Amino acid sequence: MLQILTGFGFLSGMSYPFRLLGVFKSHPRLISYIIVPILLNFVIAIFLDVGLFLFGWEVTQVLTDTIIQRLDLFLLNLPQWLGGLDYLIIVLGFLLRIIFGIILLILTGFLLVQFGVILGAPWYGKLSEELEKIKTGDVKVIDVGFFGDIWRAILFEVKKLVLIISIGFLLFFLNVLPGFGTLLSAMGGMLLTGTIICLDFFDAALERRRLTFREKLGTIQKSLPASAGFSVVCLFLIAIPFVNLLTIPFCVGGGTLFVCDRLLLKGLLPSDNQSLISQ
């Protein structure tokens, strides 16, 4: 019954970023690991907000105005008794601005995560190790050397980029289909973004075990629908300007707690030996 009420783990997945508050309360020394990442997020956010967000907002305004103008031209050819549709166009224009604004906030927060997680990796990595030690009593690390770590980090980012471009390419063509094409494309884009978010926030715990990129993707599928709930709440938290400077470290820490509870303690992660052989 509890499983049904929590959406078979969906709501439980949403709780993980906030569970870090309880860990910090009982282990306040861990707070020191998020101070530098928060400062880094602040610096990155200045450049993103001043550059990308302002530019993106102008683009969305132009795009919205173009859509409204085309609809206005379409209405000119309709009978006069349909003139009341003008009010519908006004409402539609308002809704489009809200939708485009939300998408822009998510994209800005998404980029903040990409840069913030990479630059804050040393502190996030240490936080993740301490959290895993608290949850499981031990930390498993497969050492591949300094250059091996760098190579794996670069390869991880490249594979994420390939995934984004390949799926994004398909979604672009889906968008040109009449009818529900745009809606399906938007839904696909949100699924893709949620997947990348899970990869970023789970990676601190998964990378210590040197899982392959495909195995990391597999962990998201194995932990559904809890991983979907986790990605939804993280997308919300990273999309709130200024608040996301603080919430991104909580999403990173929550990702490690998620992996420990939903994957590691349940024995759902590939064995270390299999991961090394499959690379």
Rank of each mutant, 00 (worst) to 15 (best):
F147S: 15
F8E: 06
G254T: 06
C198W: 06
R29W: 10
H27S: 14
N41C: 10
L21S: 09
I103F: 11
A226F: 03
W151L: 15
I4V: 14
F213V: 02
L131D: 01
L264D: 05
G84W: 10
F10H: 10
A226M: 05
D65H: 11
D72V: 13
A153H: 00
T195L: 15
Q69C: 07
K25V: 03
S231W: 04
L40S: 04
V144W: 02
I118D: 07
L171S: 02
L163V: 13
L184N: 02
A45V: 10
D49V: 10
K222E: 05
I4C: 09
S128K: 03
R152V: 14
W151M: 15
L73I: 12
L105D: 08
L264N: 04
P241M: 06
I167C: 06
L199W: 02
D138K: 15
R262D: 05
C260V: 11
W81C: 08
V62I: 15
K25D: 07
H27Q: 04
F173R: 06
L73Y: 08
L104P: 01
V50T: 10
S223H: 06
A226S: 13
V232R: 01
F146P: 14
C234I: 12
V243N: 07
F213E: 01
T195M: 13
I248H: 03
G7P: 06
L92K: 00
F146A: 14
I99D: 11
R209V: 06
G188S: 12
F74I: 08
K126I: 04
I238H: 00
V91F: 11
L21V: 12
S12K: 10
G7K: 05
F258E: 08
G120Y: 00
G51S: 02
E58C: 12
F100C: 03
G179D: 00
T66M: 10
Q80E: 14
V91Y: 08
I196P: 03
I277P: 08
R152M: 12
A239Y: 04
F169S: 15
K159I: 05
G109H: 09
L155H: 14
I164Q: 07
T108Q: 06
D49T: 14
L257P: 00
T193E: 07
